[in-house]
């Protein structure tokens, strides 16, 4: 179970608070969506939860199965089961996608005291999962995200997620930049990982994605906190009327 409790966080370089008391609770197996205007702090929330530098936590906790992630190094949080599909996946020149994946998988296994996968085991699994996402051998060989199209980068994030088998997945606008077919692939990839235990937090601007990945709860975030939560119909409301009405309603 994943829980964000009264999270307040500021930029390290400026005296500016971005997250202003965020609360969120996702039960095992649930899918929650977060929508909200540009700059409301959605990505910041995902960075603070996963331990990116440049932010200071002023208050609050981020709990994964009861353990406070905020006390851990980023790689420890990953090994504990937190995965973030980046809004802007990063390019790493010269490092083969496959090498990257295997290094990551084995680093986590090692940290958890599990046996590492050898080349043959790894290859078998990665091929299967890549196939489902229509990621071809060439893309696996190429340097991480270098020269990938926007959609390829996002599919690659889902492949990493599938390989790492996390407990909680935060998907930050994984749907933006995808064509209709790619979005279906990504949604199928996510749905295939829904096993009744794994939790998802899907950040999106579009109701469209939520037709494919049906959320249990939709949250609206504005100015650093959740201002409203509801069922899937809330996403439709945003799609039709925008955020203005919702924000006024709260104020």
């Amino acid at each position: 179970m994943f829980e964000i409790k009264n999270l307040k966080a500021s930029l390290a370089d400026e005296d500016k608070q971005i997250l202003k008391g965020m609360n969120l609770k996702i039960g095992a197996g649930e899918v929650h969506a977060i929508m909200g205007p540009n700059g409301s702090g959605k990505s910041t929330m995902s960075y603070v939860a996963s331990g990116k530098g440049g932010y200071v936590v002023d208050e609050g906790e981020v709990l994964l199965d009861g353990a406070n992630l905020l006390d851990m190094e980023p790689d420890e949080r990953a090994a504990a089961g937190l995965f973030l599909a980046f809004q802007y996946p990063v390019e790493i020149p010269g490092v083969g996608n496959m090498t990257f994946l295997r290094t990551a998988v084995n680093a986590q296994r090692k940290m958890r005291g599990e046996d590492e996968l050898n080349a043959a085991q790894f290859l078998k699994i990665v091929r299967e999962k890549a196939k489902a996402l229509k990621i071809d051998a060439d893309m696996l060989k190429r340097p991480v995200n270098v020269g990938f199209s926007g959609g390829e980068k996002k599919r690659n994030e889902i492949l990493q997620m599938a390989m790492l088998e996390p407990k909680v997945c935060i998907l930050d606008e994984t749907d933006s930049g995808l064509d209709v077919d790619a979005m279906k692939l990504v949604a199928e990839g996510v749905n295939a990982l829904r096993d009744g235990k794994r939790s998802f937090l899907v950040i999106t601007h579009y109701q469209r994605l939520l037709d494919h990945i049906v959320p249990d709860v939709v949250h609206i975030m504005a100015d650093g906190k959740i201002i409203k939560s509801g069922g899937p119909e809330l996403a439709l409301e945003v799609e039709n009327n925008g955020y203005e009405g919702l924000m006024n309603e709260v104020v």
Partner: peptide, 9 residues
């Protein structure tokens, strides 16, 4: 950070 989020020290 990208590498570390994936589990690398």
């Amino acid at each position: 950070f990208y590498c570390r989020q994936r589990g690398m020290g």
